[in-house]
Amino acid sequence: MREVIAPTITLVTLAVLPFFSTDYLTTVLFQALLWAYLGSSWNILGGFTGQFSLGHAAFLGIGAYSSMILLSAYGVTPWIGMIVGGGLAALVGAAIGLISMRLGTVFFALATIALAEMMKLVFLYLRPITGGPLGIVLAGGDPTTMVFSSPSHYYWLTLGLLASIIGFSYWLKRSKFGLNLQAIRDDEDAAKSLGINPLRHKVAASGISAFFTAIGGTIMAQWLLYVRPDVVFKIDHSILMAVTAIIGGPYHPLGPLLGSLLVVPASLIINSLLGGKVIGLNVMVYGFLLIISPVFMREGIYPWIRDKLVRIR
């Protein structure tokens, strides 16, 4: 019961924020929530299973393109398209896991980077379907096509998804499947001694993580109203997903949210202050935070706050 209090208070507070903020601030917070959602998706594989992916942009891109192609070519609403994209990404996620996870975590990390780069090229060359380097642009839409007039609507949609994935992560952490994933993360040999098949579990986690990431890709595409290979398959996206989880606390469902609330607004504010003067400054900010935060908060913000609160009590 006590565990429900922190996420409930956090999510209720976040739900009422747009009523008191400007459109700009709501947009900044929307981005923070979107990356919190994507970080939570990454965390199923990275935090709970200990498999470090640096190519989750591949799944983000698959989700973004799937719903965009289905909408622009076949008139299928992204509300359905995002599930199709999620399914496709899950298959790709499971396949890359099956191929590379048996060779170890380092090889898996390298394979995921290669996957995202490969996807970028494939989507560039498949011009008749993907629009090539120019991508696909939406002229507009309405809520039936997941296009909203106000940033607060995107905000609440993303908050709903975030609440779902945080709820799922809490369930996962306690379920038999989730305990098995964490056991594999902590000690694969010991997990085997309990009859747990590590490869099967890691492949499943990769598929689940990819599914949720792809849904985030649809949200991103419907918010931008366009999709391009260089926009969705960026390695920066893969890094940011990992960074939000690692800085926030990868072993707890609320970690990616806390990480994102710190990293994303900080990066946006710095970018807006310095404009286009320093290209890639946001990546430098992630890098700096990634280097400096473990010095003060070894396992992320969440356990740091929790330990402080325990001491106060």
Binding site: K176, L179, N180, Q182, A183, R185, D186, D187, D189, A190, A191, S193, L194, G195, I196, Y251
Partner: peptide
């Protein structure tokens, strides 16, 4: 070889569940 980030209780529960 214990599952270091799981609790003592979870370490044993996971064995029973599997």
């Amino acid at each position: 070889k214990v599952f270091e980030k799981l609790t003592v209780y979870e370490n044993i529960l996971i064995s029973v569940l599997n």
